[in-house]
Design a protein around this nucleic acid. Structure first.
Lengths: 143, 143
DNA sequence: TCCTTGTGTTGGTGTCACCAACGATATACC
DNA sequence: GGTATATCGTTGGTGACACCAACACAAGGA
């Protein structure tokens, strides 16, 4: 019998969340590494897909990322020709981000790889349990 | 209206989990800092409370922590007189860990402070939703 | 007796969340 | 029109920490 964690922690949502997220982080890092992506690349591509054209600052707000971290990741995506970044003619403080066709392909590629990890992650849950988990997490995040 | 994340991510359990866990991590770090504890101190105290007397290696297995990290944290708890650490007379490879009375007090103190954060974390969920979340996380972890 | 595994220690690295400050600019206010 | 404040992006930086390897000493199994 493998060693289980203490009961006190198994009843502690915060510990459970960070533990599961650490597992998830390891799995998704493998996916991102194999896709030649960084940890936040997929999230940034998703944000630009839905809200583009948009600014780096807006992406940072939507994803709760530090502006420096957004800038660094966007520079990498730009270098990989997945994002087009240009000064905003209407507001010189800003850079405007757009997905390129290659960025769209990259987004879908990572999405498919994540789907496998996702399915494996929640495979012990039935459909209603999965829905309840997602709903609960969305509620917590939305506050 | 604040900036919401992209829908694609709001339907992605792995992103939701890591996002919520990051929030939780910030909140719990505040709790641990104010209690003069490190990030894993509480978990280690919980493990020794339930399974003690036990070895560092066992604590590491139960909490999925690196042996070096367990050793470092246990040294800190020992220095704070929260854990008693002595060689195992039956197996000189091992050190045996026990909670001290001060460790028990510290455990309960952190527990109470975490309870506040926890309640705030899940306050948007009703009782059955909380139970579903905990159950789902336990299932994912248990696999 | 020898080999494998376990335990704890020591030494170390790369990632990354987070912070501050600056220059250029837009906006609000008087 | 001038001034103050806020925004955006960039540059520079730090501490925490997850993770890894190797070693010495020991127990257990073949």
């Amino acid at each position: 019998m493998s060693d289980r964690p203490p009961q006190r922690l198994l009843q502690t949502p915060s510990w459970l969340l960070t533990q599961v997220a650490a597992q998830v982080g390891r799995r998704t890092r493998e996916v991102f590494d194999s896709a030649g992506a960084g940890r936040h690349h997929y999230a940034i591509l998703c944000a630009v897909e839905e809200f583009g054209p948009c600014s780096q600052a807006e992406v940072g707000r939507r994803l709760h990322l530090d502006r420096k971290d957004v800038a660094d990741r966007v520079a990498e995506l730009e270098q990989q020709h997945c994002i087009d970044r240009r000064p905003d003619p209407d507001d010189p403080r800003r850079k405007v981000l757009r997905l390129t066709p290659r960025g769209i392909d990259r987004l879908e590629e990572i999405h498919e790889r994540l789907r496998v990890v996702q399915d494996d992650l929640v495979h012990g849950l039935d459909r209603s349990e999965r829905a309840a988990l997602v709903s609960a997490l969305q509620t917590i995040l939305g506050r």
